[in-house]
Design a protein around this nucleic acid. Structure first.
Lengths: 242, 242, 242, 242
DNA sequence: AATGAATGAGTGTTCATTCAT
DNA sequence: TATGAATGAACACTCATTCAT
């Protein structure tokens, strides 16, 4: 549905397809992110990708298709880059904190692309839009699973897991969407540690808080900045769940 | 700066200007919301507004200018419609809850326009973009003021007020931005009451919680659905601040 | 179905529409006739018509639509220009001869356009193609009616009127289609008089032949060339019909 | 002049050339016939012929050259397929009737290709167009020779042999060109027998008519349909020629 | 003040043709 | 010989903007 298989003389070599598509989509993400979908021309993408205009139509059905794969690339980055960053982490609370942190750091690396997703998803044809939304939902479920693990193991009190997970997602996205308002006030690290304080800590049980304290002692408040952990505020105390 | 004062044959009668602009901008908001900025043509706006294409250029400098005023209209709706809904409400906790609720209800009535703001703000020329952002910040400060009042009066523990206020904003916006994912799960009323539970209640002091309980007994959980308040979960208890 | 009513800002003034359409279609017929449909660009038509490219799309849906009206113009010329040339002519045999002659003369003035019709009718969308064919059929019926009148009045023996009429049509068209082969051998007048000899005379009854002879004495063999009638060959004699 | 001899890396083996060309031209005739010259792409021809796009340019100079050979193939089919069908037929009247019949049957098998010839000959470069026209003239001469033989042997009265032969050609072509109008009224066989009645019989001498009658008794009115000959109409009687 | 016809630069897309392999 | 990926010029069509009325 996203391929150029319908194109008269579509390319057949799978390796080449992968390479060219990547090449073109990367150029597209860059330009769409900077200038927006409608103001970026196919010719610009071609030039940025170092190919001819015609070539793009051997790998994509139309401009919409380029956008689709560009957005998929971004959305899949979220989905694929969080798990590796959780690897080896056992403790549910630490996993949750890391998931939030990871999401924010990934978004930080894709700030413009994240904004692009918000700007341009509606420009997609409905069927493709649906597919992109499914990508987003999968990432949401990743976050939700972290929440559930905390609740299941008694580190977090009962909450609306779905909605809380969505807050994490929005919190990460906001780093890109509202970067113009946030970057003057917070470093990314600070933003993440504040996020933990606002959106995780209040829902932890005593046991969960204890775990979080331990983690902070080790990891420094999820902040890479030295001393970022010094300002220990009063935090929510939740009774043991169940 | 947004006017068409530079236009050759600009109209001079201020009353007429206001009327025509409103007429055109309302049409623009409708069409931009439905179809997006780039896919809406000036001719469509003219037809929707019941005027000629040429007329638009007597009241706006260019298409960008129409977008600018359209976005301003949306952003100012947030800013202007929240205060009246808080009128007469004295208790800081209730004000905060009502502010969140009001924001969500306003967004609900402007779902597409809210999405439009996210899609199209970057399409504005930088100077106009800045002005739109300032509109948003003013609304943020409205929310922030509500938080501060709660903290000042000891209903809420010390928090990062700026960021918490931003969570409220994002939470309201999310009702529009992620409506496709949320509407199947929550009614608006339920969404709001869950918002209170996730983003307000955890930060309340005991005193604040007591106040919230009282409000809920009166107002029914900020939910219009009968019995929506029945599922009272364990909620955060915060020690008195300071 | 051929209008530009679907166009965003189609023109509304009927007088203007007629004028502009005529202006553009005339340019199109000229260029399509000379260069063919596919090798003629919209820009060329615009230039030839003395208008801008964009204007064409205010009066035509697409290039196909221009072709459609161009072909209709040609086909309707046949249909509309034959009757006036028969006006005042009473005798069925003379009417038939004049019809054939008129058709050939009209085709002579539209040689390239006639070739265009053969080249490009298949390039039309099926529904429009059908409409053009109906135009052609109406002209055929004009010819057929002339044949029928001759038969009914006993000037012509019973024949397959439909097919004979079609021979007249093809004979006239051939003057355009095969002009490259014919123009070296015959003048148009000679061609017409040979047509009468081949496709009318053989089917005349004695009475019909007598009438034809009288007509020729008056009109000079349907040939404007002096002496074109000198080579009187043996011709078909048909018994009285019925 | 039609070859690809000028092509950089032209193929030299004559046998291969013949084979490849045939393969490609057959595919081209099929596609051009169905879709037209301009709407058929070289890539489609390549796929239909089961070769690569590049290969076509080793056997043809350009797309125009493919069209040229495609049209030649069609035109030569007429020229080459008529004589075999006349083989063994001695009587001039029968030969003439068979020639007309054969032409119609050949056209019937090449309906779309015949239309193609009318659509696309003008798309050829002038020099190539001339060559195609010469092919057509050779077929015309085939028909003309049949007419001449009839006249010479006294079966047909004196006529404009050239033009009559052209009528036969047009009659056959019309079966393709106007098939949309004819196929509802006549079977091919009926069409042919009507053609004999309209374009041959009227010009026969008494001797010729007698011969035709005999032929019909044997061959059934040039119609494959049983009983097609039953409806014997009044037909032209010509006095002996000379 | 208002109209809407006219403009023409700009864009997505196609496809004949080339050429490295 | 044969391939098919790559090219880029060319074209249909759109639409923001202008301006005569």
């Amino acid at each position: 549905m996203s391929t150029a298989a319908h194109v008269e003389s579509a390319v057949t070599d799978p390796k080449l397809i992968e390479e060219r598509r990547g090449q073109i989509v990367r150029a597209a993400v860059k330009l769409f992110s900077e200038e927006g979908f409608y103001t970026t021309t196919i010719q610009q993408i071609a030039r940025e990708a170092g190919v001819s205009t015609g070539l793009i139509y051997q790998y994509f059905k139309d401009k919409d298709d380029v956008l689709f794969l560009a957005l998929k690339l971004v959305l899949e980055t979220y989905e694929h880059e969080i798990p590796p960053r959780l690897e080896g982490i056992k403790h549910p609370v630490e996993r949750l904190c890391m998931a939030l942190s990871a999401y924010c750091f990934i978004v930080d690396g894709l700030k413009q692309a994240t904004v692009l997703a918000y700007r341009s998803t509606k420009s997609l044809r409905p069927d493709r839009r649906t597919l992109v939304k499914e990508d987003e939902l999968r990432t949401n479920r990743l976050m939700e699973a972290c929440v559930r693990a905390c609740v299941a193991r008694g580190y977090m009190c009962r909450v609306n897991e779905y909605l809380l997970a969505y807050q994490y997602v929005m919190f990460a996205h906001a780093w890109a969407l509202k970067n113009w308002a946030l970057r003057g006030r917070y470093s990314l690290a600070k933003y993440v540690s504040e996020g933990v304080r606002l959106l995780i800590e209040p829902f932890l049980t005593e046991k969960g808080c204890a775990a979080l304290d331990a983690i902070r002692r080790r990891n420094g408040d999820f902040s890479r900045e030295a001393g970022a952990a010094h300002q220990k505020p009063r935090r929510g105390r939740n009774a043991e769940a169940v």
